[in-house]
Design a binder for these strands. Structure first.
Length: 237
DNA sequence: GGTTTGACCATTTGAATCTC
DNA sequence: GAGATTCAAATGGTCAAACC
């Protein structure tokens, strides 16, 4: 192998496995590319379990640290994405278990921190479009997020993986450690529940959609009346 | 490959009833 | 009245099949 000047590596062009090998050697560039590649997915999956921004972020951080220090763990049985997602899920589950243990302890002491913990919901940033469009999208996103948060965890996690992250059924099943058929059923039921949760909001929104009241309504009524009146006159004769 | 649906079974939950 | 028991309903997992 030549020891002369080497062309700088195009990290973004490397495969996950190659980047992982570099990350294990503390390659900052590789770590940067990998984290940028998977931040969104891991964060969403962890949020699906923890329903809390700060906790989800910490879980993702810890998952990366574990992934980039446990060289023997990735054996290529599943895809790198699945393996990494599984680590993040385990990390989030462990955090939730710890929180529940803490809550039980506090409950015994008469303190109910869990209620506060559960009540904390996150919201996401959105840009593009007019201020009205941005505000509308933000509200929709907020309502959706709140609706997803209301799903039972088993449904929420599958929904986030499949419908938010676009992970395949096979990958989702591998990441969650359940049969593919279970993923399909959970997803179907998650969607149905979301539909039920969102229905009142949608109904209310539709009531406000296609507004045709006030002056427009009155003007149209007048036009209709105007067009009908000659015929009515004629019909009389 | 993915979605949807129905069927079946197991488990959990809540209400009703019974017993002490 | 309080606890134990029973039972129906709800919920969830799995499988099979039809369909897109």
């Amino acid at each position: 192998m030549a020891l002369g000047r080497q062309a700088p590596l195009d990290m973004a062009a490397l495969r996950d496995e190659q980047l992982h090998a570099l990350a294990l050697q503390r390659g900052a560039g590789a770590i940067r590319v990998l984290t940028q590649r998977y931040n969104q997915r891991l964060y969403r999956v962890c949020w699906g379990i923890l329903r809390n921004e700060a906790d989800a972020e910490e879980a993702v951080q810890d998952a990366y640290v574990k992934a980039f220090t446990a060289s023997a763990s990735f054996e290529g049985h599943a895809s790198y994405a699945t393996w990494l997602t599984r680590i993040a899920i385990n990390e989030a589950l462990e955090r939730r278990r710890a929180a529940q243990r803490r809550a039980r302890l506090l409950e015994r002491e008469g303190i109910t921190e869990m209620a506060e913990y559960r009540a904390r919901l996150a919201d996401g940033p959105i840009s593009h479009g007019s201020p009205e469009e941005i505000a509308a999208r933000a509200e929709v996103a907020q309502r959706l997020q709140a609706a997803v948060a209301r799903l039972p965890e088993m449904y929420r996690t599958v929904f986030v993986l499949r419908d938010v992250e676009g992970v395949s059924v096979e990958e989702a099943a591998a990441a969650l450690g359940v049969p593919e058929q279970t993923v399909k059923t959970r997803l179907f039921r998650a969607r149905r529940r979301l539909q039920q949760i969102l229905e009142p909001d949608l109904r209310a929104a539709l009531q406000e959609a296609f507004p045709f009241g006030g002056e427009r309504c009155a003007a149209l009524t007048e036009k209709v009346l105007a067009r009908l009146s000659p015929r009515q006159e004629g019909e009389k004769s």
